[in-house]
Design a protein around this nucleic acid. Structure first.
Lengths: 125, 125, 125, 125
DNA sequence: GTGGTCTAGACCACG
DNA sequence: GTGGTCTAGACCACA
């Protein structure tokens, strides 16, 4: 499922990319699965088709999906690329925090705290 | 010390905010200390005074500093606000990673690995 | 409707904020409604776009509206925030009066007297 | 007692005026009482003497105090002037709130709520 | 001198 | 087209 939060400051095309990557990492999307066409998705989410096209273009450039003329876009062999892309964001956030002078122990505490809270949310759903 | 990297794509005013927060978190700046005036800092960094004023304005709205007409800007009681602001991006990155199904242990491993590498870079400087 | 009184000494951007808050509180603006673009409004009021942008920025930081890149600004879920912001000055005036030893009954009498006079003015317009 | 809050946005000279008016209204200062000299007060509060002088000038202009060359400043016959000045602030706040579309009943509720809270604070002191 | 506000005009990313 | 950022230069009130 691709969901967009318009009030989120991250560009919409990037939100789409992340959703697709996440679905691949989680297993909701598997190798060879067909993504909704750009037009289709744009209509579903009431977005500008160009925005969806841009997102698909980024994903294709990164080798996460591939497009077939006249047929649509499909999930490529992942080889962990989608996962890499996701953790890369995390890695850069860690680097940024360290540059800002954060204590490694403090970061680990934050991870533990948030993952605990996350699991509780999941359980209560 | 406040340093700016113009080639960094994060807005200049935000870079200033982070520098101030870091200095407060580290203890270089303490409650009641006076920050350089907007014009002074602008001259030092060859920026427009408005840019610095915007940064100071953000910090004031976040309760990290307070401004006094005709006197200057001063750091407020921290209560960890500066520290929170620094790890804010990190926290959202953690949430994103968890949403993508990342294993908390895996994230902690990444933090440990990167902080180790970071300390080595620091030592070799 | 947003109207500006240039001879009023309260900053223009604040006047804009109050107008928007009032329109939300009254119900003229509702959740999800789009505000005029900063440039558009600036042209209508013959102001500098930056002034409007500043007002919109304040409203966004207060969670009263949210901005979307390339689309515009929209009113957020209110939860009474707009109303609170409107009576904010009033609340501090009440606190001040109490500090000065004013009798609560006396203050209420003043409110009643002035609101009566206000309604008469309104009727005679 | 005159106390100054530097982080408060109201100008310092105005804070001084309000303190004096409040002390007169409450009865701490009475007709003929001598106020500390501008220099003295400036030293006590670590303020610029000009700031205190400005405040005293405003109070004298309003007929709340009078100055005697070489002797100092003294509290004038009040005739409720100090009280008027204080409630005038309240009145203008009420007018502003009404202009913003506030409901009179709502304002009265706010007064009741805040005065209740104020009395509780007083009791617990 | 300080911060606060406003204007004018520019560039960018997003949609 | 939109909002976001930055620069340049101006005026004001406060201290």
């Amino acid at each position: 499922m691709i969901t967009i939060n318009p009030s989120d400051k991250t560009p919409i095309f990037e939100q789409i990319c992340k959703c697709v990557c996440r679905d691949i990492a989680v297993g909701t999307l598997r190798e060879g699965d067909r993504l909704p066409s750009a037009r289709e998705l744009a209509k579903m989410l009431t977005l500008n088709p160009n925005t969806v096209a841009k997102a698909y273009g980024m994903l294709e450039r990164d080798g996460i999906i591939y497009s077939v003329q006249g047929k649509g876009c499909f999930v490529a062999k992942h080889e962990g690329k989608a996962n890499e892309k996701l953790t890369e964001n995390f890695r850069s956030a860690v680097r940024e925090a360290l540059d800002a002078g954060a204590d490694p122990e403090e970061l680990i505490t934050v991870v533990k705290e948030l993952s605990l809270r996350y699991q509780q949310n999941k359980r209560s759903e």
